[in-house]
Amino acid sequence: MGIDRRKFIKASGLAALGLAGLAPVKLFGTEDSTQAVSDSVSSRKEIGKPLEGKRWAMVIDINKCLREENCTACVTACHTAHNIPHFDNSKDEIKWIWKETFHNAFPEQEHEHLKDHLLEKQLPLLCNHCDNPPCVKVCPTEATWKRERDGIVMMDWHRCIGCRYCMAACPYGSRSFNWRDPRPFIDRINPDFPTRTRGVVEKCTLCEERLRIGQLPACVEACKAHAMVFGDLEDPDSEVRALLRENFTIRRKPSLGTHPEIYYIV
């Protein structure tokens, strides 16, 4: 009986999800409107049906990732899509997704006799879009906040005052500050995404600008090894849930109670 009821709730939840997914399509999915927009779009693809999820999450398979020698496809894709400047010094550096050794990524879980590839190679790190984000708590202007509907930790670069309290509060080093005007340091500007002004903090937004037009995050799309899987954690049939069910996964600094939504298959 109990199981039946759970099944029923699941099923109705799914149905609700499906409806929610359809709703925005109805709102602006008509033929001529998409046409009108794409006429004026320079390089961006057509506006597709937005990806809808209640709790976005990502599962990164370290083994698959590390099999690709010195691959930085995810980093390049993200940094090109989001107009990330390139500075020669690490002091002014801006990064949304970057690679670190297991030792730096999981300081609490490392030891000196790990598998060779974990000791030597680097794995991708990005904003964890925590369920309990310390950066959001400390922001004095709500320039960074957690989206209730899908769990993305967002940034409003119009509002940020550049106090950098969020950078002090983030236990994962996921945030960067624009110490200087980034524009002269961007190799090729993508007109579909803004650059930033000096004096504001920025970080990964889980490609919310892509999700809303029906595209996967740039890093996930670019990953040749299919080591990064993106999906809705609340959907029991999603690929991320299947991967979490079938593999042993870890998260960064779980003891802090931030509940990261980026999972790593070791």
């Binding site: 004095p140 202007t141 005052i161 550049g162 002004t197 004096g199």
Partner: peptide
């Protein structure tokens, strides 16, 4: 402050 002229945001959006 990175954006000193926005400092009033602290009062406009009290957190």
């Amino acid at each position: 402050m990175g954006q000193p002229f926005r400092i009033l945001n602290v009062f406009l959006y009290p957190s």
